[in-house]
Design a protein around this nucleic acid. Sequence first.
DNA 1: AAGCCAATCAACCGCATGCAG
DNA 2: GCTGCATGCGGTTGATTGGCT
Length: 213
Amino acid sequence: MVRAPCCEKMGLKKGPWTQEEDQILITFIQKYGHENWRALPKQAGLLRCGKSCRLRWTNYLRPDIKRGNFSEEEEQIIIKLHQLLGNRWSAIASRLPGRTDNEIKNFWHTHLKKRLEQNNYLASTITNKRRDEITTNASQNIDEHHINQDSQNIVAYHPTYCHYQEDIQSNKEENMQYSTNYEHKDMTSFNNDMVFWYNVFMSSGNNASDEIS
DNA sequence: AAGCCAATCAACCGCATGCAG
DNA sequence: GCTGCATGCGGTTGATTGGCT
């Protein structure tokens, strides 16, 4: 398939947007909308390609964009959605009103990814250490619960399952079950997490099954 | 004060997908 | 079914910023 020529042709401008360009784009979109991104820059009098305009609008200029730091709850949602959906940033962003896929992607790479890796390392270290203790001291009655308490304490990002319960009345009992059971289960209960979040999607009105497949 | 380095984030690039003709 | 265009998406880059020496 032949690729459509992009902005590098015809001396179109690249790089950071100026305030003036932003204003032109905002004014134009407010007036005429953005039916056709490819034609928009020409109509608006911008020396940018449509792709660049779309990105600037969707990631920065849109009026409904929420700026500023991510809340604790948003972090938890991103982490869980990433476990469920992988690097499907737009799908994740669609569940976080006011946040863009680009913003979430950047936040993931700069904050959450490192933290998860670090926490996973620490959690596995602690768990292995505990297991060694158990092996060498078999007569001592140390149960699995004890081991997992340590892992849980280390894994700071760990889910708080009650966030959605007010919104999802129909699944209330089921969700409570997950949140309660979690206290007594080990890290492998992440499978249950998956089920939980799948249910959240199904209840949210968006058919997540299409996206998961 | 200056230089270096790492973190951050806006923006770009190229592929994938959807759709009309 | 094929082709070409428009748009969406995820990975990556590079400019900027802030902290440290």
